[in-house]
Simulated assay, not measured.
Amino acid sequence: MKTIFTTLALVAGILTTSLAQTTDTTRVPAPRQAATVATPNSGLTVSGYIEAYYSYDFTAPKTAQERPVFLYNHKRNREVNVNLAFIKGAYVGERVRANLALQVGTYAQYNYAAEQDLIKNIYEANAGVKLSSKKDLWLDAGIFSSHIGFESAISKDCWTLTRSILAENSPYYLSGAKLTYTTSNGKLTLLGSVLNGWQRVTKLPGYSGPSISTQVQFRPSSKLTLNWSTFLGSDRPDSLKQGRFFNNFYAIINPTGKFGVILGFDIGSDRKPIISGDRRVGSGSYVWYSPVVIARLATSAKSYLAGRIEYYDDKNGVIVATSTPNGFQTWGYSLNYDYAILPNALFRIEGKVYNSKDAIFETTSGFGRSNTSLTTSLAISF
């Protein structure tokens, strides 16, 4: 894999002098709209991205090398590291398209921990064919960035430096096959997919699957995006009979204006597990949910100020297990400043505070109910 990555890097250095580049968005960070696939000029394009970061956890002991367990991006504590670096080749023809991106960084280290070693360096690998000569209808198969949620692993495309709790604990990537249809005016996108599981390339042992996911995205104007995504399947072995139904809702209001707002809400449920024969741990399901509000203000042509308030309630520990009486019930508050040093170079700094109902954060004297951190990053894209 190291040889492959090195080879692609050398090829990229040659090709980028002669091939068209993908549109850069570093200067104006914007949330990802995963179902919307931009169609560049036909041919091959090569692009790349790297984000270096430093996080300082004021709450954790000085020897703690990782941020809290429910975080997967910008994970390393008190050390300079790379969150995500990838090089991507994309081919688009009249009715075919393909993407291959190889990655390194702590994002891959923690988010792909359950995958086979060969898979851990694959950020994206998929191929697609346009099923209609007149309609924008595509069938794609492979490994994709997730269409669930308004945040991605590419920090420069998000309004905040670090990810929200709901983004960290829902799929960043998916594998399977999907149908995507976009109306001729570009205002409505519909997506349906058959997947290997909840953020899995390799199926969970004991789960026969498949899982199903959908997306409905409506953009009545450039100032408003409305989205509803779902997941139906499981992230448990078949023997437990724990079906999962998950919904993701968000609205992006005035994303390119001087002031914009994102409203997001996730809610999911897992059926209670089997413990003996057909007997369950009581009837019904375990439910978790998370609302988030992000507001962003353009302070100049090159800078933004963004604030976030969020809450995550998983008292039964379905997604975030704490082994405490009240489970994971946590508020989050953050404030970040972005400055575009160059059109493709973005510097960011963010302060963040978590407050939880139970003492779940490691401290110098045991465990506490709050956590405070400061993170900086420098992202370069080409």
Rank of each mutant, 00 (worst) to 15 (best):
Y286N: 15
I309Q: 09
L224V: 08
S221I: 01
S146Y: 00
Q329D: 09
I165T: 12
T63C: 01
T189V: 09
A359L: 05
I262Q: 05
G257L: 06
N344A: 06
P291R: 09
A52Q: 13
G176P: 06
Q33C: 10
Y172V: 04
Y289D: 04
D314Q: 09
F218Q: 04
L8P: 01
K88N: 14
F367A: 11
T22E: 15
R163M: 06
D358W: 06
F231W: 09
S239R: 13
A251S: 13
R279S: 12
A30N: 15
F150I: 01
D238K: 08
K120A: 03
L335I: 13
A306Q: 00
T16G: 05
L84I: 03
A52D: 02
V292F: 10
I294V: 15
S145P: 01
G105R: 10
R163Y: 02
K315L: 08
S303G: 13
A30H: 10
S18I: 15
K62T: 05
P31S: 12
A9E: 14
V96C: 08
S356G: 06
K62R: 13
S300Y: 02
S42L: 11
N126I: 07
G260N: 04
E151V: 11
D117E: 07
F58D: 09
A359P: 02
F382N: 14
Q103H: 04
Q217I: 05
P210E: 02
K357D: 10
N227Y: 05
L188F: 10
S145F: 14
N83P: 07
K352P: 00
L346C: 09
L71K: 11
L139C: 12
Y181G: 07
Y250V: 05
D235A: 12
L179G: 09
Q103W: 01
L19E: 11
E310P: 07
L8N: 03
N169G: 10
Y337D: 02
G277W: 14
D235S: 12
M1R: 07
A340V: 04
F86T: 05
A127N: 06
F70Q: 13
G43R: 07
K302Y: 06
G93D: 08
I14M: 10
E79V: 15
R67W: 02
R244S: 03
N81K: 13
S42V: 08
R280P: 00
F249V: 07
V292P: 00
L44N: 07
N77K: 03
K75R: 14
F144A: 10
R271N: 08
N355M: 11
T22R: 14
A177N: 04
S175H: 02
F367T: 14
L131K: 13
S184H: 10
L10W: 08
L191F: 03
L191C: 07
K75D: 03
N73W: 04
